[in-house]
């Protein structure tokens, strides 16, 4: 065999190409449901995405976590074939977003960040419309949307424009699900929704995940990150880290202190002046403080603070959350 190869260099070359192509086909079959390879996209002089690569496995609830303007929507639009990337390749469900865009469009569900249903159509008309557009009926896939749709069904003759924020989201989710998509793209579904509805919404997502739908969800709320299987932290068009929320939190290698006092605002500005304080951020009723000098004791810090006029200051160790990790990562 090897002799043969040496004799016929040309055919050897061709043979290896064939082999290579075969292996790439094999590779594609094992590809994750959503795959991005070094995606870049610029709007004029603004670089929205820089060399972004992510993989979403089948059946995963994957969170894209980052502040406004991080590039989440741009990435979603590239994956849903709505815009073209400047560089890089992506596949969704094994289909290329540029070549096979038609196949992707008929198999995924997409819910844009802005409420984009017909406000002058009723709840039922919207749902029927989207069912028919995808060549199906409400009855056919009722099981999938039942839990969600049942909550808004009493209002089915109401115009979509007259619904509350939470109900609008439920309707939009129902419409995105009505054709039983393999992958569901949810762009900031909980922005502008009240905390109770948000919690409820994430409950629905867990249920959908159990039914085997791969879900890619973006959110600016860090507290929602822990509800995902895996998260990608994104800022300024770059992915900072991809891991499970637990791993991301456990990789936080500093000790974090919670600080509370009477005058929280003054406490924050004073703490930031302390030479040993690396960072200090406000989280609800507590300040999260990271020190760069582990020799500093809590008593020493309390004394220093009372010297600044702070009374009843309590300092206690706390577990870091995803937001702490995000802050830490953005600093690097």
């Amino acid at each position: 065999m090897s002799q043969n190869n040496e004799l016929k260099a040309d055919s050897n070359c061709q043979l290896s190409i064939v082999n290579y192509q075969l292996s790439s086909v094999n590779c594609q079959l094992q590809l994750p449901t959503v795959n991005c390879k070094s995606i870049s996209k610029a709007y004029g002089s603004v670089q929205a995405l820089k060399e972004v690569s992510i993989d979403v496995e089948a059946g995963e609830l994957y969170g894209l976590i980052g502040p406004d303007g991080a590039g989440k929507t741009t990435l979603f639009r590239i994956l849903t074939t709505l815009i073209l990337a400047d560089k890089g390749t992506s596949t969704v469900g094994g289909f290329d977003v540029v070549k096979d865009y038609k196949k992707i469009r008929s198999s995924v569900g997409y819910m844009p960040g802005r409420f984009s249903l017909y406000q002058d159509l009723t709840v039922e008309e919207n749902l029927t419309f989207f069912a028919n557009v995808f060549g199906t009926t409400i009855e056919e896939n009722y099981d999938l949307i039942k839990d969600i749709y049942q909550q808004i069904e009493p209002f089915k003759t109401r115009r979509a424009g007259a619904l509350s924020g939470g109900m609008k989201q439920k309707l939009a989710l129902s419409c995105a699900l009505i054709h039983k998509p393999t992958v569901l793209f949810l762009d900031e579904p909980t922005t502008g929704v009240d905390p109770v509805s948000r919690k409820e919404f994430w409950g629905m997502l867990r249920n959908l995940k159990e039914q085997g739908i791969t879900i890619l969800v973006s959110t600016p709320y860090m507290d929602e990150a822990s509800l995902c299987d895996r998260i990608a932290l994104i800022t300024n068009g770059q992915i900072l880290k991809v891991d499970t929320p637990q791993n991301i939190v456990s990789q936080f290698d500093n000790i974090l202190w919670g600080v509370r006092g009477n005058n929280m605002h003054k406490l924050l500005t004073d703490l930031r002046l302390h030479p040993s304080v690396e960072s200090c951020f406000s989280f609800g009723d507590t300040l999260h403080v990271m020190l760069n000098n582990n020799a500093l004791t809590t008593t020493a810090l309390t004394t220093w603070l009372s010297g600044k006029g702070h009374q009843d200051v309590t300092i206690f160790p706390i577990e870091p959350n995803v937001e702490d990790c995000f802050m830490e990562l953005t600093k690097q």
């Binding site: 709505l82 469009r105 008929s106 995924v108 844009p112 802005r114 984009s116 557009v133 419409c175």
Partner: peptide
């Protein structure tokens, strides 16, 4: 923005 959803359909 409804065009966005309509485009992502068959």
């Amino acid at each position: 923005g409804t065009m966005e959803i309509l485009l992502v359909s068959p």
